[in-house]
Amino acid sequence: MKMMNCPLNGLRNISEFVHGGEVKEMPDPNSCSDDAWAEYVFYTENGISVVTEWWLHAPSGYWFIAERHTGSDEILKTYDPSVLFNKRVEFSAPVTEGMA
């Protein structure tokens, strides 16, 4: 079976992992346009190249980032998300008029 190196758990069978999609920058959901949000949620590069993706190691519930080639399926490197994300993303509901 194909194997992947989990930054937390080491080399494991690919069946232990769940693919989580391309790493993209999230627009501010409160201020961005519908098109920008749709672009973020639905549209993908989906090319034949090295892509930076989210992956989950399911048995440990650990999310990390992998760089993988979508043509050869070669996994070039895997690393902890703290390399790209160094602070917690906070969500706040937009202020709506008439709400207490």
Binding site: N9, R12, N13, S15, E16, H57, A58, P59, S60
Partner: peptide, 12 residues
């Protein structure tokens, strides 16, 4: 500790 798949289910 190994967090892995045992008999196809997740286990610690």
């Amino acid at each position: 500790i190994a967090q892995t798949s045992v008999a196809r289910i997740n286990a610690i």
